[in-house]
Simulated scan of single mutants.
Amino acid sequence: MKVVFNAIIEVCDEVKLATIESKNSNTVVQCVKEAFGNLARVYLTEAKWSQEICIPTYQEYKDNGVISSTYPLMITSFILLAKSAQYVFDWISSNPKIIEVVSLIGRLGNDICSHKFEQERMHVVSAVECCMKQYEISEEDAYKFIEKEIEDLWKVINEECLKSDLLTKPMLDCFLNAARITELAYENFKDKYTDGKLWKDDVIALLVDPISMEKPNGNDIHYK
């Protein structure tokens, strides 16, 4: 725990150095610290569930899982390291819907793909078990239920992007790309985060063999 805590302190010090020229440096560091604190609290909740062999309700699990996905920490840190105006800090502090939805896509996507592997060892329950218990359905039906919810969450992302008049396009792209990488990482029920070798074809397609198209003047252009 000391090693982990010291690593977090080092990250916060780096954030302070990176934003030292900004008048918002102290605010940024405080936001990052709070994000780490929130993550520690939900990890403690999961540890208690595991020790007590407790299966929470599906909603309780999702409420906790939004934070345990680590997406709020990553997204908040990434955005705040930019030269953000005060309204951005206020907006992030309001727990915006789009961050919650993107985080939940990450949590549920991970749970479906890593479910069988993680249940082979002593591990906290996943969304699958919570869904099965609460709705008294089979494992297969729980997968379908969660997949449908992920589809619906994408609709919420689209809705939030369309109605947002506070966020710039780069910020919206940050949220969209976080959800997109989740879809890619867990496509076909494979957990590429756990098994890095599964990224090989994607990396080759992006960097080694990009799509080549010939322009009318004979010059090739490459799309990555």
Rank of each mutant, 00 (worst) to 15 (best):
P170G: 00
P170K: 05
M171F: 13
M171E: 07
M171V: 15
L172M: 15
L172G: 02
D173W: 06
D173I: 12
C174Q: 02
C174S: 04
F175D: 07
F175V: 05
F175K: 00
F175N: 05
L176F: 13
N177H: 12
N177G: 01
N177Q: 12
N177M: 07
A178D: 09
A178M: 10
A178L: 06
A179Y: 07
A179C: 03
A179H: 03
R180G: 01
R180P: 07
I181H: 00
I181Q: 05
I181V: 07
T182D: 03
E183R: 05
E183I: 02
E183F: 06
L184R: 01
L184P: 08
L184Q: 03
A185W: 03
A185V: 10
Y186A: 04
Y186H: 09
E187P: 10
E187W: 11
E187I: 12
N188E: 07
N188T: 07
N188I: 08
F189Q: 01
F189G: 05
F189Y: 04
F189V: 06
D191Y: 02
K192M: 12
K192L: 07
K192H: 10
Y193A: 09
Y193F: 09
Y193N: 01
T194P: 06
T194E: 01
T194F: 08
T194G: 03
T194V: 15
D195Q: 12
D195P: 13
D195A: 04
G196W: 13
K197F: 13
K197N: 14
L198G: 08
W199G: 00
W199D: 03
D201E: 13
D202W: 15
D202K: 14
